[in-house]
Write a protein that binds this DNA or RNA. Structure first.
Lengths: 348, 348
DNA sequence: TGTTAGCACTCTCGGCCATTGAGTGCTAAT
DNA sequence: ATTAGCACTCAATGGCCGAGAGTGCTAACA
């Protein structure tokens, strides 16, 4: 059954009102606050219909109505565009803020991702999550062993995605510059251009067995090398703004807040949520979430890319009555900026 | 006026009881729970005296008594040792946990400090803070420019404190291995052994002006070099366990919790608190704190060292009724382990 | 003289009840 | 089809009361 236009307008007003007040909205308030051109009694009848259709529900008989997940879904899919158009000015302002914040923060890529989480939580006043890029396909570009003093060696590794990592190895015996250079060359020759994920313990052992002369040196370097590579592949999760929930009336109950925070502390579940979301901007509303602890919440995710491939995600978590129009537009714009940033890191 | 022994014993019992229950303690409870060998009526008289002396106060006439800051101060200075002796077993257990946790986490130094914060908040169930070491005196040990491809150069810097950092420079023109090597040698020659703090923009400009041949290359490297050095000197603050306060009855009032969290979010103030604390283990109780928002709280700080110099601090923040004996012993032991760890990083 | 039992008094806390007010659904009039 | 009017519902608020925990004081006791 298709909802007639008036019902849609009423539903939209209810949703918008509830998003900003968090209070069940009644027919009188609605008639007064929004110029719908109909009386509260008519609104009451329509609301009754909307409730029957599953878009609204009442916490108790003598209270106003609250939008259901189904209503939010409709809002996100069809009704949201309109207020977004009206708020074009606000959207522009947000875009400007985001742009300026990113300009000021050039630094490292990882830092940018961690900062993005903070920026998101600041702008949305909600909980934000960012995943640092995973360069699954990234290849090893360069590797070097450098003697630092009689018992420390610096190991540097650079990937094609432009990430450089280093570590200092402590040794008991002294190694000559020449032997370190030879091993560097050797490893470079054998490993350069390989996908980082394909450089395994076994492969290095293979090299070691092949080249008897330096086998002990290679053996010593191996664990540090593997650990750096693993570090390069690993994805970091940045979670910010947890304390924002205390400004939300839905978490005025301290027990509820505690439980939710406990849930958020389990990083794996959050990662799961992000990984399972669709590409582009995706909105998951209330019970659409698989985790029980998230079923009062909505999650807006968005993806950023490199060379057309999704390499990372961001997410915003808030109550189901979050300001979808606003959040979606922020998420969309932030990922666009991140995609840009990534391209710049790689192009230059 | 010197407190007689019986008063001290009663005060000690009150403090210990209040630390574990967070409820005002009454004379009857005290007489029943602790074998003081005197009746509740006698205890009442003594409590009355203790109140007059400023060690106790009542939230209202018909409630039990609560220790004052003055009482906690006395407890920390004189009374705390005894329960600590009795709980030797628990202390040993904690030491074992700490030791094992640290053994499993070798990794980077910075990671160890960040992990320490998590460990502390986990063990104390309170808020913990750690400052990463500041090697003010640390000297530059090694510097190297390595060509990666036609338009990227890897810059690696190692400090004598054993920290290595790198960054990738993007260039428009291609530089030969030889010229990069020469500039590396040159910079090494000029800068090696200098305190990192003394390597300024001006000094590098001086070098640039001196060596005309490579002045453009040096100019290009300069900002990245300075930014890495700055990064090496900067101190990171790790704050963990904020959400632990929701398990404390004193923060069951959501407004109070919100306010306190807001205070903790201002990192500079926390840094201030740590910086102003004394060396070794230091306890600051309630109103002894300069920040108003901390005056319901106590802060236990401890310092870790390198070569006998204090290079970093840790802190634990909790309500004034925190378990001082336990917290102090944990703080003390953790900093001992950190000092050990630092020595190992440097010695090896 | 120090200790203790007994008792009257104080004050918070939790439950109970009536009142208030926002909001609904229904009916009848427009 | 819309709306004004009205009876009804129910959460929230505030006042009231009794229970319980704790105190201070007094008088008796060792």
């Amino acid at each position: 059954m298709e909802l007639e236009d008036r019902k849609l307008r009423i539903l939209q007003a209810i949703i918008q009102d509830f998003i900003s007040t968090a209070e069940p909205v009644g027919s009188r308030t609605l008639a007064k606050k929004y110029n719908l051109g109909i009386s509260s009694a008519t609104i009451r009848n329509e609301m009754s219909d909307l409730e029957e259709l599953g878009y609204l529900h009442q916490p108790h008989t003598s209270a106003g109505r609250i939008p259901s997940d189904k209503a939010y879904r409709l809002y996100v899919d069809r009704l949201m565009a309109e207020p977004l158009q009206q708020n074009q000015k606000l959207v522009q302002k947000h875009k400007k803020i985001i742009q300026e914040e990113f300009l000021q923060r050039v630094g490292e890529l990882e830092e940018a991702i961690s900062y993005t989480a903070r920026l998101l939580s600041k702008m949305t006043k909600l909980i934000s999550v960012t995943l640092s890029p995973q360069f699954k396909q990234s290849k090893l570009k360069y590797l070097q062993l450098i003697p630092i003093d009689s018992n420390s060696i610096l190991l540097v590794i650079v990937s094609e995605s432009g990430v450089a990592k280093n570590t200092i190895l402590r040794t008991t015996e002294t190694h000559s510059l020449e032997s370190l250079q030879m091993v560097s060359n050797l490893l470079n020759h054998k490993l350069k251009g390989l996908c980082i994920a394909d450089i395994t313990k076994e492969r290095i052992r293979g090299i070691k067995d092949e080249i008897k002369t330096f086998s002990s040196l290679i053996e010593m370097v191996s664990p540090a090398l593997l650990s750096i590579l693993e570090d390069m592949l690993s994805v970091n999760l940045y979670l910010e703004g947890i304390t924002n929930i205390f400004n939300l009336p839905e978490y005025h109950d301290i027990e509820k807040a505690k439980e939710f925070i406990g849930f958020l502390d389990q990083r794996e579940q959050i990662t799961d949520l992000l990984v399972h979301s669709k590409d582009g901007v995706d909105v998951t509303i209330g019970k659409e979430n698989s985790f029980e602890n998230m079923q009062d919440c909505s999650l807006v995710t968005a993806t950023y890319q490199l060379n057309g491939c999704v390499v990372g995600k961001i997410g915003i978590i808030g109550p189901t009555r979050m300001d979808y129009a606003n959040i979606v537009s922020i998420a969309d714009y932030v990922t666009k900026i991140l995609t840009d940033l990534l391209r710049k890191y790689n192009d230059k």
